[in-house]
């Protein structure tokens, strides 16, 4: 299995098939108050635990605010990590910064090590004035981030739900993973739910997973027991026998693909294999 970067959020790695892909750009999309910053710090705390270099870029929180807010959740150790140099906090002023800002890139390049976890919270002020024609520039910036490490960007979901704005669509299109968080505010299990919109180069669980925000823990993703239950590992030989077919009857390239599907554990894999075999028989 491909190496993964653990998110530090209990349950989220199961939804993502193990975690983020190394050297990828990952987006947390959601409106204010859904827990994007909390997940960001869980990601960084996990990185520190694993010995990774961690960088936090923010437009509204400096060291003082970070220590204050994370201490309120129960993560008092963050203050020590900052003073020990394990976590670097950098505050920028939104009116002075864009994704091509040299100071920002210098900080990221200067502080990055072999395994670096970068969080930009939030990415929205950096691209709020852009239109879709800036796609190539944002893509260039994302490629720079990929060279430096594994990045988590938070993106503000417009309160009117308009996903057509370039500040939302560009990061969605160009990033490797998008996780959408939503709180409908009625206080039941599904009031807060997350789902993976995309996860390039990896399987991910489909559907909405309820989550809670808990003191000490942060975000806890629930309902992941269903993922294991629905996994369906298929014995390809058995299916071939059932359909009175032999390997030799099927093009080699297709057999390789069917083997991959059979091992994948994807729900519905058996039915899909049978459907494909019916078509080639």
């Amino acid at each position: 299995m491909m190496e993964r970067i653990k998110t530090g959020v209990i349950g989220l790695d199961d939804v993502l098939g193990g975690g983020f892909i190394p050297n990828s750009v990952n987006v947390l999309l959601g409106s204010a108050g859904v827990g994007k910053t909390i997940i960001s710090f869980q990601y960084l705390l996990k990185g520190i635990e694993e010995g990774d270099k961690c960088i936090f870029i923010s437009f509204d929180m400096g060291e003082h605010e970070v220590i204050k807010h994370t201490k309120a959740i129960g993560w008092g150790e963050i203050a020590d990590y900052i003073s020990e140099g394990k976590l670097s906090i950098n505050k920028f002023y939104a009116e002075n910064v864009s994704y091509v800002n040299n100071d920002l890139l210098n900080i990221l390049t200067g502080e990055s090590e072999l395994n670096t976890r970068i969080v930009i919270d939030s990415f929205t002020p950096m691209i709020s004035s852009l239109n879709m024609e800036s796609r190539n520039d944002v893509n260039w910036f994302f490629n720079k981030l990929r060279e430096l490490g594994t990045t988590l960007l938070t993106v503000e979901e417009p309160m009117n739900g308009d996903f057509g704005d370039a500040s939302v669509t560009l990061p969605i299109f160009l990033s490797d993973t998008v996780i959408h968080l939503k709180n409908i505010g009625y206080g039941e299990a599904f009031s807060r739910g997350l789902r993976v919109i995309k996860h390039r180069g990896s399987w991910h669980a489909e559907g909405v997973f309820p989550y809670r925000i808990l003191d000490g823990i942060g975000v806890l993703v629930e309902g992941t027991d269903l993922i294991e239950e629905e996994k369906e590992v298929v014995d390809l030989e058995e299916v071939l026998q059932e359909m009175n077919m032999k390997r030799e009857d099927i093009p080699e390239s297709l057999i390789r693909r069917l083997e991959k599907l059979a091992e994948s554990g994807n729900p519905g894999a058996r039915d899909a294999i049978m459907e494909i075999l019916k078509k080639v028989s």
Binding site: K182, I184, Y186, F190, G193, R195, G207, V208
Partner: peptide, 9 residues
Amino acid sequence: YRIDGVPLC
């Protein structure tokens, strides 16, 4: 369905 129309299961 969730009340906002999102299918849950």
